[in-house]
């Protein structure tokens, strides 16, 4: 591990002032410190933002504001979150382990990096870690990597469960930084790899996440489901956060589908959503919608299973929500 300086910021503004190239913000450290041990992240300086006074969950009129430093466990067990956004509580609880969730923060969870095996091994090439060095995952191990929106440069997936639920809930990510404050609506925080796989998100250097704001819960039934070969403590092969609102006439009034484990960002299945809204809430319609979405899938040999998996998951989840 490369030697580094460490400071603890007292306020968000101070944290941003402390920023200089080579600086990284430190949340719970459950991802960043691992990557530093592996030599993947080599900051000169850490500014600890885990103890900023951004650790509360507050309701502001009909919205809920979750501080960036709220621990994953505290988010998942919060009575208001559980009552109003059960899908979010569920998504957080399916992630990692109790011990990891106790220290992991909301901002850190959003900004955790891909679990691609090559990315985590500094002795192998990886465009995301060393731009221009190549993407060995395409010919090698991509079993758990992307089927949507990947590029020739990178086929990584974003591993967060929480981010998938936030994408379905259309949460807003509040950011402050050297360039001022801004609000980024989910799923807009994460980007597709394109030519610049080294950039996971649209954040600029020095940007600090201060909060995640949840709009009023969507109308309709919601659910989060995660698929994994081990029953716990495993990243998603594919996950889904879905909202379905079926009117009394049996017509779909609203539908949101966010998928995890399939792309470089939480993937809103907009084609499927569009295909469903205004139509009947039947198994047949769900299947057609899933297939419409999967037309744009670009699976590789070892992750081709994610195509039927995603299709089945969309259909079965919507059927569950419709009944």
């Amino acid at each position: 591990m490369k030697p580094f300086d460490y400071t603890r910021a007292a306020s968000a503004a101070q944290a941003v002032r402390e920023y200089a190239p080579g600086t990284m913000y430190l949340g719970g450290g459950t991802n960043l410190v691992d990557l530093m041990r592996l030599g993947v992240a080599e900051p000169d300086r850490l500014v600890d933002v885990s103890r900023l006074p951004l650790d509360t969950i507050e309701s502001v009129r009909d919205r809920v504001r979750v501080g960036a430093a709220v621990r994953n466990t505290d988010l998942a067990v919060d009575p208001m979150i559980r009552a109003r956004y059960p899908m979010l509580a569920r998504a957080v609880l399916t992630g990692a382990s109790g011990q990891v969730r106790n220290v992991a923060t909301v901002a850190g969870n959003l900004l955790q990096r891909t679990r691609c095996a090559y990315f985590q091994d500094v002795t192998r090439p990886c465009n995301k870690r060393r731009p221009g060095s190549g993407c060995p995952a395409i010919a090698g191990d991509h079993t758990n990597l992307a089927i949507f929106g990947a590029s020739e440069a990178c086929v990584a997936t974003h591993p967060s469960d929480m981010a998938v639920a936030l994408a379905a809930l259309e949460a807003e990510v509040h950011v402050t930084g050297p360039g001022g404050d801004r609000i980024i609506p989910m799923p807009g925080l994460h980007r597709l790899p394109g030519e610049e796989p080294e950039r996971d998100t649209v954040l600029e250097p020095g940007d600090l996440i201060t909060a995640v704001e949840l709009p009023p819960p969507p109308t309709g039934a919601t659910v989060y489901r995660k698929v994994r070969e081990r029953a716990s403590f495993a990243f998603a092969l594919v996950s889904i956060a879905a909202v379905l609102d079926v009117g009394e006439d049996g017509v779909v009034a609203g539908c949101r589908i966010a998928l995890g484990g399939v792309a470089h960002a939480p993937w809103r299945a907009e084609r499927a959503e569009q295909a469903l809204i205004g139509g009947p809430a039947t198994g047949e319609a769900f299947l057609r919608a899933a297939e419409a979405e999967l037309e744009q899938a670009g699976p590789l040999p070892r992750n081709a299973y994610k195509v039927p998996l995603t299709r089945n998951l969309i259909v079965s989840t919507l059927e569950g929500l419709a009944s």
């Binding site: 095996a117 192998r124 060995p136 010919a139 191990d141 070969e229 081990r230 716990s232 403590f233």
Partner: peptide
């Protein structure tokens, strides 16, 4: 391509968890 092994940690090499 490069030789050696991939998935060389317990986050990637899965053994049964209690829930299994």
């Amino acid at each position: 391509e490069f030789g050696g092994f991939l998935r060389r940690d317990l986050a990637q090499y899965h053994v049964p968890a209690c829930a299994d």
